[in-house]
Design a binder for these strands. Structure first.
Length: 871
RNA sequence: GCGCGGUUAGCUCAGUGGUAGAGCACUACAUUGACACUGUAGGGGUCAACAGUUCAAACCUGUUACCGCGCACCA
């Protein structure tokens, strides 16, 4: 056996092991396997992206699940890939071209530009994949997919064609969310409302039929007033009833516009009068439809004013125009006042500029299978963790709006619609000479919603679809999760079942959805590129190792709660790895391990029995936690077991056996050690794949990799000696506390005396001495006088100090203990004297209180005696 | 406005009815035998507030406050 390094050095281990794992093809899933299938499709990261802490959390969870499935003997597939991210990538490449070649995409033309994007994708698209490998992700890289792979792209277009012919897709001239930054329409889900501090401007318009009478109107957007084609009031508003049917003068360009009545107006808001701009507001558009108002578009796609009749404003940016139009109103003496005002403005998620409601010709999808999508979640065919997301999902689905799927973007899936004159054809291939394809591409999410199955070939799909679990962030519950569910139910990748119920069951995209929390910085802010508050995971890996990062993060990532990131936590992850490493190193120093060690074939110390019992408890707790997707609970349980039960206790007691070749329990302790390590390494492997593999191989646990070793399923089981070990550990704790209270340096050898109620073996006394750093633990039958004492489950532990002790100080110490004991005793007495409580509390509880009372009373008595002895 | 989370030690968080927990940080002690990425001990909390249910509430119910998020509104 090779000597283990003094500290775990992840840099010496990770890359070497990962290369070996890939070379051996461990992660290539076999679609023809007879083993139970377990599958996950990765939420495909953008090709523009680099690894963030969010990715680390998300992908570590997936890796934990998939590695555990492998250990459980399942055929595991983790299918990786990337997303072409139409708009994001196009923007990134345009920025690159502008900077390096001073050209725009229009300079290059569509074909050449796309060639450049592909070249860029070749160079940058794989960065994040390499980073996932550094993290240890055990994806089936041979099955890596890209949303613009030829077959995938064709499937996306085919889906469009199918939905078109089924009547779900239509082209419409409608109000859409227009992004003036990236010059495309976007979907409702990509609009982020943000509170904006602005002004509410009160203007007055003269009534045409009654010169000298003015109407006050409040608006936040005076720059669009050239597009106003009416003024609206609530039909029941008494203030303005007589004005209905009359007109006001729009100040510029000067024109008469009608005053109409519409239910939409809130009489209590502002002045109760609304300027109606049908071309630039969704609600105004609807009012315009109801009253057959003309639509005047006064904005260009870039968000500049397009109104030659008002030359002062024409060509100005919309925000410049706002200031200018206010000035102009002032000059006309038509501005009454302006007040500070905060309202929500929709921002484009991608370009982070205010979106502009704009009338335009776009493609829309009326969602199919919404009822079924609701049903599969309501009836728990698909389970959400945490379950409260079900409500959010339901709310969205029941209020669902048609999806604007066309984008004025070049990089992506071209819409498979062809035009020739007034003729239209919807098909994937060109109908032939003279047909022009629609210039737009499809929303990126229109390709990702097929990800759960279109990434798979037929054989893979038969074996691995529906996937077992999806791990993702709740921020894309509508954008991706809900749409994937719908896609599965509409396109039936597994075909029809015998019953409608079975059809649903066979075609849901996944059975469980685990929503991760968001990682925030120390101040609770979202991590973002612009704030620069996100650490680079690769730096963290270099500093703490991939396992340290993974374990540290998983231990603090509670289910569904946001996580406040603190590098200290990653440091703890690394420290834990080192602790585990050194426990194994210590074991390796005692000689070869036995891969098939069976502790029950040997005589065992109480301490060995105790660790075995704790192992069972921990194993069971880990399995329960996993079943509930409580990753941090499982991680904390293992941390506690390794650090406290294994290292602080069992390992220390084992030294007594290891230091004594003649010890009759030596072999049992060795076997226990091997048995425990063999299992704890496997239990930890999903979290910390590298170190557990390295230790498994270095210690020689028999198989060529830990990754397919059997997942331990021990359960909680009482062991006869465990209780005694517990009691001895308690004696140790009390002894150490005594030492601390008398400020005796921890390296000073002491003599303790024990007035034991229970018999202790010589070996047990030896362990006691070892853990107490005692020169001797003497068993006495009479309580010594004037000696500091502690009350333990085994008996009274005395610390006879050389030299004179200060009776006053010792009395003070005992008084403190007495006060605490008395307080506890009174509390217990109170309970046991409460007849109501005794009558209604469960008998077992009452018994518990009774024995506690006896114990406390005895301690109380002994303390009083001790204090009396001190005089 | 509606909905969903959260509020427990200085910090990050566990804790689903029976005397408040962990790690970090802090203080003291310890430096050749697994580990300083360490060990040992210690201090530190009226569990956001109020009301209710209960023999018993950090935990269940209701109200309020504050923080975060989603949806709607957004003149």
């Amino acid at each position: 056996m090779q000597e283990l390094a003094k500290a775990y050095e992840p840099q010496q281990v990770e890359d070497r092991l990962y290369a070996d794992w890939l070379a051996k093809g461990y992660y290539e899933a076999d679609a023809s396997s007879s083993k139970e299938a377990y599958s996950i499709v990765i939420p495909p990261p953008n090709i523009t992206g680099v690894l963030t802490m969010g990715h680390v959390l998300n992908n570590t969870i997936q890796d934990v699940l998939i590695r555990k499935a492998r250990l459980e003997g399942k055929e595991a597939l983790w299918l990786p890939g990337t997303d072409h991210a139409g708009l994001a990538t196009q923007t990134a490449v345009e920025k690159y071209l502008r900077k390096n070649e001073q050209v725009t995409r229009h300079d290059l033309g569509r074909e050449e530009f796309l060639r450049r994007v592909w070249a860029w994708q070749e160079k940058h698209g794989g960065i994040i994949i390499q980073q996932l490998k550094k993290l240890g992700c055990s994806c089936d890289w041979k099955r890596e997919r890209f949303t613009l792979d030829t077959a995938y792209a064709e499937a996306v277009q085919q889906v469009f064609v199918d939905l078109f012919h089924k009547g779900y897709i239509y082209k419409g001239h409608r109000m859409v969310n227009w992004c003036p930054g990236s010059l495309t329409a976007i979907s409702d889900e990509e609009v982020i409302p943000k509170a904006q501090k602005g002004h509410l401007f009160y203007m007055r318009y003269e009534v045409a039929e009654e010169p000298g009478r003015f109407l006050e109107i409040a608006t936040t957007r005076p720059e669009t007033l050239m597009g106003d084609t009416a003024i609206a009031v609530h039909p029941g508003d008494e203030r303005y009833k007589d004005l209905l049917g009359k007109h006001v003068w729009r100040p510029f360009p000067k024109a008469q516009i009608p005053i109409v009545a519409d239910e939409h107006i809130d009489p209590k808001f502002g002045t109760g009068v609304l300027k109606v701009t049908p071309a630039h507001d969704k609600a105004d558009f609807e009012i315009g439809q109801r009253h057959k108002l003309p639509i005047i578009d006064v904005l260009t796609p870039h968000g500049k004013i397009n109104c030659p009749e008002v030359p002062e404003l024409h060509g100005l940016d919309r925000f410049e125009a706002r200031k200018k139009s206010v000035e102009m109103l002032k000059e006309l003496n038509q501005l009454v006042k302006e007040e500070p005002y905060e309202n929500n403005v929709g921002f484009s998620e991608r370009a982070d500029v205010p979106i502009e409601p704009r009338l335009s010709e776009q493609w829309f999808l009326r969602y199919p299978k919404t009822e079924e999508a609701l049903k599969v979640v309501r009836e728990q065919l698909i389970k959400f963790y945490p379950s409260h997301w079900e409500k959010v999902y339901e709310h969205w689905l029941t209020n669902i709006q048609d999806w604007c799927i066309s984008r004025q973007v070049w990089w992506g899936h071209r819409i498979p619609v062809w035009y020739k004159g007034t003729e239209i054809k919807c098909q994937v291939a060109s109908p032939g000479e003279g047909w022009e394809q629609d210039p737009d591409t499809l929303d990126t999410w229109f390709s990702s919603w097929l990800w759960a199955y279109e990434t798979m070939d037929d054989a893979t799909r038969r074996k691995f679809y529906p996937t077992s679990v999806l791990v993702t962030g709740p921020d894309i519950i509508f954008l991706w999760v809900a749409r994937m569910i719908i896609a599965g139910l509409e396109f039936l990748p597994s075909g029809e079942g015998a019953t409608p119920e079975e059809t649903l069951q066979k075609n849901i995209a996944f059975k469980d959805v685990y929503f991760t929390g968001l990682i925030r910085d120390g101040k609770g802010r979202k991590m973002s590129k612009s704030l620069g508050n996100s650490p680079d995971p690769l730096d963290l890996i270099a500093k703490y190792g991939a396992d340290g990062l993974r374990f540290g993060l998983m231990r603090i990532a509670p289910q569904g709660q946001d996580i406040r990131f603190d590098e200290k936590q990653i440091e703890e992850g690394r420290n834990f790895c080192n602790k585990l490493w050194n426990a194994c190193r210590f074991r390796a120093m005692q000689g070869a391990i036995d891969a098939k060690a069976d502790p029950d074939k040997h005589a065992l110390t109480p301490f060995a029995q105790h660790i075995l019992q704790r192992l069972g408890e921990t194993n069971e707790a880990v399995n329960i936690a996993f079943a509930k997707f409580e990753f941090s609970n499982a991680a904390s349980g293992l941390y506690d077991f390794v650090w406290n039960d294994l290292c602080s206790r069992f390992l220390e007691t084992a030294k007594a056996d290891f230091n004594n070749p003649e010890s009759p329990t030596r072999n049992g302790t060795l076997a226990t050690f091997d048995f425990v390590l063999s299992r704890v390494l496997r239990l930890l492997h999903p979290y910390a794949p590298f170190i557990t593999e390295e230790l498994w191989l270095s210690l020689g646990f028999g198989t060529e990799t830990i990754q397919f070793a059997e997942w331990p399923t021990l359960t909680k089981q009482s062991r006869s000696g465990a209780e005694k070990a517990e009691a001895i550990y308690s004696v140790v704790d009390h002894g150490r506390t005594l030492r601390g209270e008398f400020a005796i340096p921890s390296n000073q050898k002491l003599k303790f005396q024990l007035l034991a109620k229970d018999a202790l073996s010589a070996a047990e006394i030896e362990v006691l001495a070892l853990l107490l750093n005692a020169q001797e633990v003497e068993i006495v039958s009479v309580a010594p006088k004037n000696v500091p004492v502690a009350f333990t489950p085994i008996g009274e532990l005395y610390l006879p100090l050389t030299g004179v002790i200060d009776p006053a100080a010792e009395k003070a110490r005992l008084d403190k203990d007495l006060a605490k004991t008395l307080k506890d005793l009174e509390l217990t007495n109170k309970k046991l004297n409460d007849t109501n409580m005794l009558a209604k509390a469960p008998a077992a509880k009452v018994e518990e209180w009774k024995s506690l009372q006896v114990e406390l009373a005895a301690k109380h008595q002994r303390l009083l005696e001790q204090i009396k002895m001190l005089g």
